[in-house]
Design a protein around this nucleic acid. Sequence first.
DNA 1: TTAAAAATTTAGATTAGTCTAAAAATAATA
DNA 2: TATTATTTTTAGACTAATCTAAATTTTTAA
Lengths: 216, 216
Amino acid sequence: MNTFTEENYLKAIYHLSTQHDSVSTNQIAASLNTRAASVTDMLKKLADKRLINYERYQGVTLSPQGEKVALSIVRKHRLWEYFLVEKLNFKWDEVHEVAEELEHISSRDLVDRLDEFMGHPKFDPHGDPIPDKNGHFKANELKPVSSLSVNTTGIISGVREHSPAFLQYLEKIKLVIGKEIKVCEINSYDHSITLLLEDEMLYISRDVANNLLITL
Amino acid sequence: MNTFTEENYLKAIYHLSTQHDSVSTNQIAASLNTRAASVTDMLKKLADKRLINYERYQGVTLSPQGEKVALSIVRKHRLWEYFLVEKLNFKWDEVHEVAEELEHISSRDLVDRLDEFMGHPKFDPHGDPIPDKNGHFKANELKPVSSLSVNTTGIISGVREHSPAFLQYLEKIKLVIGKEIKVCEINSYDHSITLLLEDEMLYISRDVANNLLITL
DNA sequence: TTAAAAATTTAGATTAGTCTAAAAATAATA
DNA sequence: TATTATTTTTAGACTAATCTAAATTTTTAA
């Protein structure tokens, strides 16, 4: 078994790996709010346990075993988020912190039964895919709203940023998962976008458009 | 906030306090599978935080603040056990270990919503009372089967021992919560008991009778 | 009521995870 | 390509929780 801390490092490396081939010490330190020196210490430990591929100064990748552990944490995190929203009526901006704790509960049986109880959901409340018990999931083909051209439509299906502030903002302007949008105008100066959402015009910044994901 | 370990010490002291006025270092060490020296260190720390009343060599009691923390852990533990059995179909002998982890999830909101979701249950799957959000609960008047005299009846309502081995044994002989029993004969040599359970005669040892609780 | 036994505490180490400050390696650029 | 800047690692220290072994206090019982 791995410690709570080791699990958090593996999860951080996993998430950073989806954006970069190899993950650097500083990237990990930033994402875990810790210092580079602490990261180096932990990387040595994880390498000793064969959970990562690590050579000094060369960055790090997950080993197959490390990826397996990371995926099980991600699975637990997303299943718990689904549970909190669907069964306990949490809002989608309230679940992340709690799921950060719940994801470390070790019982394999628990998470599988929870999955069963909820009918094997495929996506969490933010549109992220939930890996199955073998770590498999179909990566959904999500594109940021900012990549759309004028007059195309799409369905809001996920977010790239999970901060409560962002999620609450989306909630407030009713830009939530499942809604259909149409791009009406793209401002070429600041890349802000005017959308059509349920017969209403809506103006969003480039930043929001970048972090909001749709399926076509 | 208190650490995971501090919470476990407070919980252990709480449980031991229900049986003894003042709790000794060795009792705590035994119940936590640790050494007396480690317990002394922790007692100093808990006393500094005003969670316990402690004087060297004199044993320990919970302060009001300490009892509040302990009760919140007990509440979480028992609510999670109820959830696991009622919603996720765990057996009553499988839930203790998992609940030992879940009881340390800190979100107050989570446990209150869970309570709500399950309809504010009053007793966990082993018949132990679940404190409400203010730490209040009515201590049920349970007596061990071993205290009954011949020809009296009672309803199985709880257990005093939570080991999987004991619970599985009860399950096997169908002596589970809710069933009515009648004491037919008490063996004066070894205090074993012959019971009537649903028209069948059943023989149990003194030890089992001591750890099985009934309401009249 | 004193000597032996038991319980408890202290002293001194150890491990996991973290930190700061300094050294070493890599990357960037003049 | 030589020098500067950045990144990463090492060295050494700290805290929380634990341990063993020795010392101290309390309890028991002769």
